[in-house]
Amino acid sequence: MTSLDVTMTVNGRTVTGRVEARRTLADFLRKDCAATGVHLGCEHGVCGACTVVLDGCTARSCCTLAVQADGAEVMTVEGLADGTDLHPLQEAFWARHGLQCGFCTPGILLTMRELLADNPDPSEEEIRESLSGNICRCTGYQFIVEAVKDAAAVLRASSADRG
């Protein structure tokens, strides 16, 4: 069984490790990089709780081997806030009660971040479609949808300020 050296950037820090080829990126991030905000809800690519940003696009870290991410840049939910300033999505989820147990939340936040980057003013239907790859068993999604709408408005306003 091969073990390989891998190097990647996780939330801005370079990490190196020697991993078995079979080790999933999710386990590498959780156990070897202490990024325990990466959650394993199904380990077969359906629930979305393990979603991370891999080289700029969201990816299921349970469906990716750590060795596949050698040389990559990875962001987890731990990298979402700016210092101690919560990201507008985090603020909106807090204000709108967009989470209950919070287990699915890291994956949802990163998925919604990608949605809003691609589509700054999504309709409710577009938000729901984009959310449909992430299972939340607690909320019934309505307050998540409302939080995403709020965050989108905040992000649009701040990009207008900058622009």
Binding site: C57, T58, R60, S130, S132
Partner: peptide, 9 residues
């Protein structure tokens, strides 16, 4: 096909 996150990979 699945969801954007799946199609990304």
């Amino acid at each position: 096909v699945g969801h954007v996150t799946i199609r990304n990979r």
